[in-house]
Write a protein that binds this DNA or RNA. Sequence first.
DNA 1: CGAATGCTTGACTGCGGTCAAACGATGTGG
DNA 2: CCACATCGTTTGACCGCAGTCAAGCATTCG
Lengths: 260, 260
Amino acid sequence: MASLPSMPWARGDMRTGVNTLGRELLLRRIAALTPLSPAEVALILSITEKPKLHAPGTTICPKSDGSPHPRLIVSGWACRPRILADGRRQMLAVLLPGDVLGDRGDRRPLALNPAVALTPVRTVGVAQLFEAASLMEPGFGGLADAMTELGRLEETRALDQIVRLGCQNAVQRTAHCFLEFYSRFREIGLTHGHSFPMPLTQETLGDFLGLSLVHMNRILTQLRRDRLAEVRDGAVIVHDFARLALLADLPDPTRVDRPN
Amino acid sequence: MASLPSMPWARGDMRTGVNTLGRELLLRRIAALTPLSPAEVALILSITEKPKLHAPGTTICPKSDGSPHPRLIVSGWACRPRILADGRRQMLAVLLPGDVLGDRGDRRPLALNPAVALTPVRTVGVAQLFEAASLMEPGFGGLADAMTELGRLEETRALDQIVRLGCQNAVQRTAHCFLEFYSRFREIGLTHGHSFPMPLTQETLGDFLGLSLVHMNRILTQLRRDRLAEVRDGAVIVHDFARLALLADLPDPTRVDRPN
DNA sequence: CGAATGCTTGACTGCGGTCAAACGATGTGG
DNA sequence: CCACATCGTTTGACCGCAGTCAAGCATTCG
């Protein structure tokens, strides 16, 4: 395995997904969802706001009431936590660069849920994009589609989370989670070979996957031992996509009957 | 414990939530969400379509593509299943009378998920309501609000399901599930005292709560032994709401910090 | 009557939680 | 520079919740 010097990206960019050019990240994300008109591209590139920095543990996107305008995560990781009475925590979702937070005017429960920074997080306001999209002006249809599609994607991931937690064991959950993260980072061009950033502690990852810290560690150890994937220097290296996917094996959403 | 003769409702109406007056059920449900104008009430009462009957196991609301117009469940239970490769099943949601299925024009992933009848289910089309709501005509604002609110409620329940599956044990899940069902039936006036319909087999209930048939049975036995709740004659009788709620204890969604 | 369905119980096993200790890396102050 | 604290990871020991296998029972239905 290559050590740090040969993987310079594992230090800066990779560790927290820092990308100072938030506009380009957003452009890549949206363009992957839907074709954009020149006017839309220009609008996205016109965002010059200096990103706001959120410290780990702070709430990015506050309450259900007069919550702030939608914001784009430019760098860093966030989550939507639920805290139980006994202090345990279960995350509904993990938010990565390119994800959009805040009410989109439709007051979806998931979007209204507080988002909390897990690492240092940088965000920029993208209210302009929503305004342009909501005006239904010609030439901005792709943008409108993309904005609503971003919300749908988060909902889709929440549904996957239900299945993961409901009927997958620890190894399957972890495998599926890693593959999900990989493809999400791939969409925004932040993978490097078979690697993607992983700044979360094992305890935090366990809070997402519904596993205790100790068991999370055992699973990661096992995945490494079996040469499926490993966490190293703030990044996950996937050694065997095929076997990992075989393990994860989330069901076809359209399937309705059991195999006799 | 009263036996059957003293609980006649447990036989017909109760068992599957049958209510031949779907309009009134819908009216009650929507009116509980938002105030309605006389015009809206009239529109709802003008639905005279004969309910369509869906046999258990059949798909009510087909695929992501040209799916049918939105339909209201008038009676019976349905679910949104995910089938795993090994034949196991995890439900994303359980759908009860008063719930609306089908795409509402916004292509939400949850609403696009197939819905399958668990008992005999009766539904009526409610496309007219959505048309009236989408026209933004004055006097129909409450209806529009209510229709979108129904979708939000389903999303909220999906989020609760994540927490249930992620970090509650079998007893807690069951307790919380029963309380959820009770309050949902209460909204549509289908509770009777401390009781609500429960036509599901223990295996099916287990598929919702991520529990095996055998363990589901043990939990129900335990709840009955502890005089918290019991399933009897196709209905759940809640003996002790307070203790059940104490057990269930889902977290405050707005809470973000752990206790100290 | 037998077959099918759903509920119940026992025995066993194993996944995953809890407690505890130790280790390495990093950081801080004396 | 070292002592010490902190944080995250790692490992062992133990145990309990929940899954699996299996059998038995009640009810309904053909």
